[in-house]
Amino acid sequence: MYYVAKVNADMCAEYKCNTCTLYCPEANTLMFDKVGNTSWVDEDRCKGCALCVYVCTDMLSRNCITMEMVHGKED
């Protein structure tokens, strides 16, 4: 069981943004899909720090990212 960030794609696509993606401490993890105009998280790489939540919610007041508990294959 571990914590990961999840982007609400419909909400995020409302903006022309890509800001949170730039601030994730992990490379190739919080990605931006240009076609869908939304950020998305590679959950296997996310370390659950919620830095992206600070960017989207506290700085930009867009509230598109939530932290959620997910279950690995073994638990």
């Binding site: 994730c24 401490p25 931006f32 950020s39 370390k47």
Partner: peptide
């Protein structure tokens, strides 16, 4: 830096702590 997340970055998965600002800055350097 302006379109990180849209190309394959030079930096890969690393063992630095969750939320480490140093890791973020190293990603930016690359």
């Amino acid at each position: 830096p302006g379109n990180m997340g849209q190309f394959k970055e030079l930096m890969e998965e690393h063992p630095m702590c969750s939320g480490c600002w140093m890791a973020y800055y190293i990603r930016l350097i690359f």
